[in-house]
């Protein structure tokens, strides 16, 4: 008698466990159907845009003869951007498109100065890489593209790289290009509010390859967007014909 009762008890317990297990599995299945990206799930199906921005070179007219003369070669930021795009393409999923934004006026001025067709060379580079090339002439055009260039709810920005002149508070797209040692087209940390907060994915990778960004700009970026921006403490050097490297005492931070 006792044995039969124990047997029944065990069987009913197993039944309950099976039901609970079944309910848990069904619930989990429904939850993942409703929230596919929960718990850091992959974004493989959701489209993203990866953006690389290139600022412009200085004019030799302004920089010639200075002890710390910038941009002896016009293509420092272009060459580095190309290297980064090639790197991104190695891990580019099918749902991701890469866009390259280049500050045109500075290259036009340098082209006039050097009597070279620089714009055609940049277009040829973009064609060879198979990426979309967008020129921008003002800060407003860049900000406008970031905010509305794509439907950011459907296609947020998953990667953002900046190559160009900068100090700890500012990206300068035309340093020493129109004015000696000065910049007319720039994005200051005080202007980060021009960029919409929710245009980036939660796990977007953001990096400034310019000088000094890690000393202040990165912190302001994190405060504005909630996602870190990797930036340099110290100077970055573009003489490597590839991605820039840090100066001797420099380091990356975010």
């Amino acid at each position: 008698m006792v044995g039969q009762r124990v047997q029944k008890l065990i069987i009913s317990c197993l039944n309950h466990l099976l039901r609970l297990g079944f309910l848990f599995m069904a619930g989990s299945y429904a939850f993942f159907l409703l929230f596919p990206n929960a718990y850091g799930g992959s974004n493989e199906d959701k489209p993203e845009e990866w953006i690389v921005v290139s600022g412009g070179p200085a004019l030799r007219f302004f920089e010639h003869g200075k002890a710390d003369s910038h941009d002896k070669y016009w293509g420092n930021f272009i060459r580095a951007s190309v290297a980064r795009i090639e790197q991104l393409q190695l891990s580019q999923p099918k749902n991701v498109e890469i866009s390259w934004l280049v500050f045109r006026p500075a290259y036009l001025r340098r082209a006039q100065e050097e009597k070279l067709d620089i714009l055609s060379q940049i277009i040829a580079q973009a064609d060879a890489l198979g990426v979309q090339l967008f020129w921008f002439d003002t800060k407003e055009e860049l900000v406008n593209y970031l905010n509305f260039g794509k439907d950011r709810k459907r296609e947020p920005i998953g990667n953002f790289d900046y190559f160009g002149h900068s100090n700890k508070a500012c990206f300068m797209f035309d340093y020493s290009s129109q004015f000696d040692n000065l910049s007319q087209e720039f994005l200051h940390e005080k202007e980060l509010s021009l960029i919409e907060k929710k245009i980036f994915t939660k796990k977007a990778t953001i990096k400034s390859w310019g000088c000094h960004s890690g000393e202040f700009f990165s912190q302001r970026w994190k405060k504005r967007f909630g996602i870190p921006m990797v930036g340099a403490v110290g100077k970055t050097d573009y003489t490597s014909a590839s991605l820039p490297f840090l100066s001797k005492t420099g380091r990356w931070t975010q």
Partner: peptide, 15 residues
């Protein structure tokens, strides 16, 4: 009708 940025002083200058 615009100002320029001086990165050495973090100031805006009239032109």
């Amino acid at each position: 009708d615009y100002k320029v940025y001086d990165p050495h002083t973090n100031e805006l200058l009239e032109v």
